[in-house]
Amino acid sequence: MLANMQSHSIAVFGAGVMGRSITALALGRGVDVVLVDVSDDVLRDARAEITQQMRHGQLMGAFPADKTPGTLTTSLSSKGAADAAVVIEAITEDAALKVRVMAEISGVVPAGVPLITNTSGIPIAELAKSVQRPTDLAGVHFMNPAYLIEMVEVVRGPQTGDDAMAVVLSFLEGLGKKTVVVRDAPGFVTSRLLHPMINEAARVVAEGTASVESVDRLMHGCLGHPTGPLRTADLIGLDNLADALRLLAERTGNPTFEPCELLMEKVSRGELGRKTGRGFYDYGEVLS
């Protein structure tokens, strides 16, 4: 009953920060990928960055040495996903946009092909309303860079079926990921905790309590956070962070989750973090 089961290829929608690093992960593990975006320029940049990311993964020993890397195909059409064994949606964190694209994807792939959303925190139940087969939909929250971070948060929506869960978990195992399955809720676990912390860290800086560097050094040196929240924010992308915080505020009714002023200022200045070369920190040339 699982259509496209023999297929070794997956489709990834959205060639931004996450779409790229998820694609690099899959390719490095020998899985072919069709990467779909709405912009030719984005796809061209993505191809170049993915090549570097795969080298990065190899450098850090993230890929099995005996696996031939998968092949990358790019496409401007959702039809590119027709033969995929698994589809991963990693487009912009915009609920209305996701609803439209998820509906489109579910019209292209046959029943039994799991549709994974990489949303940071839009409830799966909410997105399930837009797809033809809610049983095939699950959340998998990959973190950036997906090819280096060993664990993913898996979100089982109220309608997610056993079959879809089984395929998703075995797919993730094939990618070498450890998984923790959680129930559906706005922000799930990781975004519910991390995003407000980053927002508060930015408020601490704006209030003049400490510098960006001091906040990160304290969270790293005293509390063992790997990089500090503001460096993490730059890695995520401040525009995505602001979008995710806004959605979290709306869906929890907690107004302190609204993105703080400093964050919004940076977004409006186009200082989006590593991807633009500057955010809370200055990165000089963008690493590509």
């Binding site: 570097q52 080298r55 990065h56 450098l59 850090m60 860079p145 280096l148 990089t227 890695l235 590593r274 690493l287």
Partner: peptide
């Protein structure tokens, strides 16, 4: 050296 800086060294 963080893992991201490692790749910058390569480049």
């Amino acid at each position: 050296v963080s893992s991201l800086f490692a790749m910058e060294l390569v480049v």
